[in-house]
Write a protein that binds this DNA or RNA. Structure first.
Lengths: 148, 148
DNA sequence: GGTCCTTTTGCCACTTTATGGGAAAACGTG
DNA sequence: CACGTTTTCCCATAAAGTGGCAAAAGGACC
């Protein structure tokens, strides 16, 4: 389970399938037939996709919370209710559930964004805006720092 | 892993590949088949290229940050989403991903700038401007300092 | 100035990846 | 139980990426 790097854009086909970038598949190929978990992210307009073995930690965190508290209920929602398992098919594709696709405004193309342990799924235009905002912030810091 | 010195200019081929200067390869040749990590720099209009073993420290820094904070998300973007691993091929070349090349305005030629532990990749004209601006800044400091 | 060696770079061939479409299987409904 | 719909699997083609050879360019050293 190597880290996931980079951003990649692939096309949704008529059946709602899309190829997972080869570099992501290769990074995880030491666990064959691995299940993935797709869920909405805390970041608006994107989904998170986790390998099931890594996702186990979230489940344990939820179970450690005291029952029937607002935090526990909220975490149960995030970790279970809105999350769905998915498999990578023999051609390296996943199908994105229609309700989640709609939630983040997916249309023809899908942008995959590597985040180390997991990846994000975005509409390409929104992904670009998200990444650009971070870069702009970093450049601002780099330019301002020496003169201060 | 000796330090990288100097600046060198090489040409991109039709497929986005370019020879890494021999002096850089030689400086790193004690780690055979080393993976490199290419990412946008905090300095606008250039890329940074790090040896994977050195890059490990950045990954650990990210993982030490609390999840879902603005800092963590920004660092995940810098360290993973915009970074890509690259290998030096048997001819001593690396291929620069199209999106990163576009980001810094690369065209036919690539300028490699040694920075000790890592090197930068620039469009030659911009590299020249960057180095010149830095020298001017240093001269200014050298002249002003004694009079203060 | 000429020869040899290293480095760079163009080009071709091959492998891998992405994607469209068709057939079979599973599912749900009336 | 039969039908239509949806999902999954598999094949085939297209596109992209990777590796390798070999010629050209550049330097070093006689």
């Amino acid at each position: 389970m190597k880290d996931l790097f980079g951003t990649h854009e692939n096309k949704l086909d008529a059946k709602g399938r899309v190829s997972v970038p080869a570099s992501f598949r290769n990074a995880w190929k030491d666990v064959p037939e691995m299940t993935l978990i797709i869920r909405p992210s805390a970041v608006p307009d994107c989904l998170e996709v986790w390998p099931e073995p890594t996702y186990e930690q979230f489940r344990q965190e939820v179970r450690a919370l005291p029952k029937n508290t607002p935090e526990r209920l909220a975490q149960e929602t995030i970790v279970f209710s809105q999350a769905v398992p998915a498999e990578i098919d023999p051609q390296g594709r996943i199908s994105i559930p229609a309700d989640l696709a709609e939630e983040i405004g997916l249309s023809a193309s899908v942008c995959f964004v590597g985040r180390g342990d997991y990846f994000q799924i975005w509409d390409p235009a929104k992904a670009k805006a998200f990444l650009k905002a971070t870069r702009a912030h970093i450049h601002k810091v780099a330019i301002e720092a020496p003169s201060s």
